[in-house]
Nucleic acid binder design. Structure first.
Lengths: 228, 228
DNA sequence: TCACTGTCAAGAGCACTGCTCTCGGTTTTG
DNA sequence: CAAAACCGAGAGCAGTGCTCTTGACAGTGA
């Protein structure tokens, strides 16, 4: 993949990466809202207008950062899925996602916070965005194959529209029962709700610091999803 | 409360409300990020500098809007708690919170999205912010008194730091068991994670439209919290 | 080798922002 | 009635995203 033929192409790719690196660094310090193209260009020793040769607009730069963030988080979750005991693996994925979010809170806010106004995510973000839920679904699928997944006694069988929507997910985890697929979405929303609350300060006064609460939630949600 | 004595004080209170009203209206159209004091002052037919007599900074205006939003959402949740059957009441609170969020998505994003960079919530926001979780805790407390709350069989008893944190919540719901208090926080994070995912577009492709998924989640979370 | 073509950084400039300060005029207060 | 407090208007500063033009450079076919 390093076959950037001409020197110009290689220089362009390098500068593009450099811009993103500086942008990420600024992101971590001043936040997405205050990310300034002029400040980035200043840091790089170039003039602001030159930046537009690489990113057509501020939104396009942000989109690139969003995709990178989704991929970094997805990779962290996938690397944590080591294929050992399903419940341990589940806890490892949870810990990896939370760890990444706490290490890169501004990038987390970029992808799971309020959407940038006037900006809508292009289709190119949905594949990187689905890596974490896919890791969880894959784990459930493997657990099902190993007989480590049972439908919890109080899990209602979905019907109507909900059953149809669960069928869409079945394409990704063919052997997992519908009731568990719906619960997988529930625990997915709980995971990111919990992390968002922790990072955005909503837990202050109750469960902050959140380490033990997070660990307990992870275990209870594993059971809720049917892992045994 | 309409005892604004002097004419000046009454005019000031009125203009303050007018500014907030225009700001809310702008919020709904262009989003929090693009909220402009100059645009607000233009709309009001005054000069931008005059606005600073009422709000010392953009952040202070945003803080006022945040507090108003928390209170509006909290009031919606409290109004939904009609004191009938606990589970029906639970579902009503869930529906009220989601309904408010879908009606005022920008104001929801303001309070549950990424925090405005460089801005930290003053202490005055924590009381309005706690009205929704308090409504849920109050419901659990009443259900406990009516014998409609039982600790689910698989709910682990919290220990260590988690048990201490649960004790803090007990001040608000004295008779609710610790295991349920921890689960109340879990369902609280799930509720807002689910709403955020719906509003911020994370559910597109799986559970969108989310009506049935939301209803199913609300019921399952009621059971998870121990409501019978 | 040479001219052509596409790409690049630079600079000036536009319209906008939050915010500060000063200046008169009005209202409230002692 | 005079002093103090408050108010809106206006000018101005430093910053922003973005556009357009200009001149220099690299790569490529004749």
């Amino acid at each position: 993949m390093n076959a950037g033929r001409t020197a110009r192409e290689r220089a362009r790719a390098e500068l593009t990466d450099e811009i993103k690196a500086v942008a990420r660094q600024q992101l971590a310090t001043v936040g997405a809202e205050a990310l300034s193209l002029r400040a980035i260009s200043r840091e790089l020793g170039m003039v602001s207008s030159a930046l537009y040769r690489y990113f057509a607009s501020r939104d396009e730069l942000l989109t690139a950062l969003i995709i990178d963030a989704y991929n970094a988080l997805g990779a962290a979750a996938e690397d944590a899925a080591t294929g050992g005991d399903p419940i341990e693996e589940w806890l490892a994925i949870y810990a990896a996602v939370r760890g990444w979010a706490r290490t890169y809170p501004q990038e987390y806010a970029l992808i799971y916070g309020s959407p940038i106004s006037g900006y809508q995510a292009p289709q190119t973000t949905v594949e990187p965005a689905s890596r974490v839920p896919l890791a969880l679904l894959g784990l459930l699928q493997r657990a099902q194959a190993d007989g480590r997944l049972t439908v919890p006694g109080d899990a209602p069988e979905p019907s109507g529209v909900l059953a149809q929507q669960a069928e869409v997910l079945r394409a990704l985890a063919p052997d997992v029962p519908s009731a568990v697929l719906v619960r997988a979405v529930i625990v997915w929303t709980q995971l990111f709700g919990m992390i968002s609350f922790e990072l955005f300060g909503q837990l202050v006064g109750s469960m902050d610091p959140a380490d033990e609460f997070f660990a307990s939630s992870a275990r209870q949600m594993a059971a809720f999803a049917g892992l045994r």
